[in-house]
Design a protein around this nucleic acid. Structure first.
Ligand code: FES
Ligand code: FES
Lengths: 144, 144
DNA sequence: ATAGTAAAAGACATTATTGTCCGCTACTAA
DNA sequence: TTAGTAGCGGACAATAATGTCTTTTACTAT
């Protein structure tokens, strides 16, 4: 469904969100440990997310990653996914044709559109904030 | 969503199905041209599909790929997908945790299960036969 | 100011996926 | 029986994704 990079990215942002709700900045090492992801690789992903303004970072001691107070409730899954994986999930043809064109649909176009629209809606309505609270309340987990 | 191999596989099987309905066996070259896929790579994929009994092949002149009359209506998308891509679509955690375990769900588990079940149902209820008739009637296409 | 810290950036290594090539085998038709 | 055909199988090549390492940059606390 998503690339590994994207999965690490989502898990990381959920963790960062959770900690930002507590007013904490978190370092790379802590994140990688919390979500069980390769450290250096995770660094690259976080850099991307910073460049796309989804998260912020500060260098030096007491530095780390965090999310602005005002963004805490607005960031949703779709932002993270499109930053890391691009818009392929939304635009690509399910059978790999040059493009997904309703005027010249592939055999599974109609069926795919249904699934894809469900997915799209889900990604756009699921906030990182809500995912983080699941973790916070111990209902969901970020590793194992 | 699916690997390229899987997409080529699906397109190929649809084409083979369409031709088998007309009682024709089709050669690799013809298939690759019809679905716009790399020939040698497609050969590998067709071999897999043969080993899993989804399609059949015959060597020598007048040989080629085809689907048994009795299977023509029973083969569905899920068979092809699980042959090529395995059961990852069904079993893997959407966030890449070791396993998708409802007892220890990841933050998006519930949301994912909905999408995945939709997808699963779609794959299991969509027959290659029905996809092939769309192509036959000119409503859908296998390349471009 | 300076030493220490943590992220940024770029080069590099590994692995998985995708794609190609070629000799071998099975088959058919003449 | 033999020549030609078409899929099979294994080895190989190219690319993309994943993952690592090292140096530089920005910052902060002392
Ligand atoms: S054309 Fe294939 S999914 Fe739209
Ligand atoms: S645990 Fe992640 S999808 Fe089920």
């Amino acid at each position: 469904m998503f690339s590994k990079a994207c999965k690490y990215g989502i898990r990381s942002v959920i963790y960062i969100t959770k900690q930002s709700q507590l007013g904490r900045k978190v370092g790379l090492k802590e994140i990688a440990k919390a979500v069980d992801s390769p450290e250096a690789f995770t660094a690259k992903i976080l850099q991307k997310l910073c460049r796309s303004k989804i998260i912020k970072s500060e260098k030096g001691p007491t530095g780390g990653f965090f999310i602005d107070e005002d963004k805490l409730h607005s960031v949703c899954l779709s932002h993270v996914v499109s930053t890391i994986d691009g818009d392929t999930v939304y635009n690509d043809c399910g059978l790999g044709m040059k493009s997904c064109n309703p005027k010249k649909p592939c055999p599974v176009h109609n069926q795919f559109m249904v699934i894809r629209n469900n997915l799209k809606t889900m990604l756009e309505t699921t906030t990182m904030h809500s995912l983080a609270s699941g973790v916070k309340s111990g209902l969901t987990f970020l590793k194992r």
